[in-house]
Design a protein around this nucleic acid. Structure first.
Lengths: 210, 210
DNA sequence: GGCCGAATGTACCAGTTAGTACAAACGGGG
DNA sequence: CCCCGTTTGTACTAACTGGTACATTCGGCC
């Protein structure tokens, strides 16, 4: 394969990579099929050959993005003996993780604008999300057993609080940043913002139940 | 004015109202000028007469939406003597407020996809957001003075945590709901979700500082 | 080395879409 | 009751946009 002039796999993955950028940048309706094609070494024709339609391409982008992110998430392996340390580490690593994946977060925001229409058509994504919940369950269980954590909180609640904070940082940085005159994306501010989510979760979980 | 066959003010505000719905539903590029016009009693011509362009209309929608929401927010007046009660009430009222304004939250999400390009062109929105911060400042100050609240947290941090949680509920309900099989918008679940943000903020603020 | 299906490129199209030229109708002030 | 600027409606267009018909080229296999 001298120059890979014909390489189905490469063509397909190049299209997917460029489409991810463009959809994340402009949204589904804002993205232009012609622009995606122009940014690759191949042509628009290939989009239809491999993905059938603009929508098919978008669905493929979404699916690949979720798989990639869940893959990366599995690296978050918190094995602190102390549940308090563990939950803080999980929250702060989640923060770091989100800060580093803003294209993904933009895609998720776009998908929510579409009320989840496309994500619902992708099989097997749910399963992919279960490990995250499992890890949390386990930490919470230990923390409760040791009498460190309140009992009226479940894994979904905690995941919701952490996700909300971490996603918001990235997803709403422009409006929030403008209105309150802060740059949430500034590297200088990151240690503080990271510590806050740790403090929030630890303070919440270790407080006595209502 | 028998039948208001000619009523500049009504024409303008009807366009704005319909445009708000359509932009919130479909995003800036997804929205169709013709559709907006068709849903009013007037014609597309009027959009260009009053707003100049699709973008001008979108900007007007965004501005009006922000003004409306800040107006409504001023009703959130928490006058509990106890800072702990006050901060919990503020968090929970913010939750209720967001749940009731999902069109606005969708517009904000859309604006963030556009990296805040349009909101930055609107004068005076910043000023509009200051009261929210002022109220928080005051509650925190009292809480610290009474030795109830930790000292390493400022109003922006608290506002960020509350906003993130409340916005996420609505903005990301579809993807989160699908992946974790919960309906965040279900009225049955609301009391719990409302209590969670109260617990989170109170637990966090009343925990000892790091 | 020639056959054949997979892979690719070119040129094109039909429907859509933001925006506008032109003119008419309205209604308040004189 | 008529004049004139504001407001409104109709019909149109130029550019864009997703999608496709058709031809061609490549490369592995016998």
């Amino acid at each position: 394969m001298a120059e890979a002039r014909r390489d189905a796999e490469r063509t397909r993955s190049e299209l997917l990579a460029v489409a991810t950028e463009v959809f994340a940048e402009d949204g589904f309706s804002g993205a232009r099929v012609d622009e995606i094609a122009a940014r690759t070494r191949t042509t628009k024709r290939m989009i239809y050959y491999y993905f059938g339609s603009k929508e098919g391409l978008y669905r493929a982008v979404l699916e690949e993005a979720y798989r990639g992110i869940r893959e990366a998430e599995r690296a978050i392996d918190v094995d602190h003996a102390d549940p308090v340390d563990a939950i803080r580490a999980l929250a702060e690593l989640t923060y770091d993780h989100h800060v580093g994946h803003d294209a993904f977060i933009r895609l998720v925001a776009i998908e929510n604008i579409h009320r989840g229409t496309f994500i619902r058509q992708i099989e097997g994504l749910r399963t992919l999300s279960q490990p995250a919940k499992g890890l949390l369950d386990e930490i919470l269980e230990r923390g409760r057993a040791d009498g460190l954590f309140r009992a009226d909180v479940d894994a979904i609640d905690v995941h919701l609080v952490i996700s909300a904070y971490c996603v918001f940082q990235v997803a709403n940085q422009y409006t929030f940043g403008h209105l309150f005159d802060v740059d949430l994306a500034s590297p200088d501010r990151r240690p503080h913002l990271r510590a806050v989510i740790g403090d929030v979760v630890v303070g919440w979980l270790t407080a006595p139940a209502r």
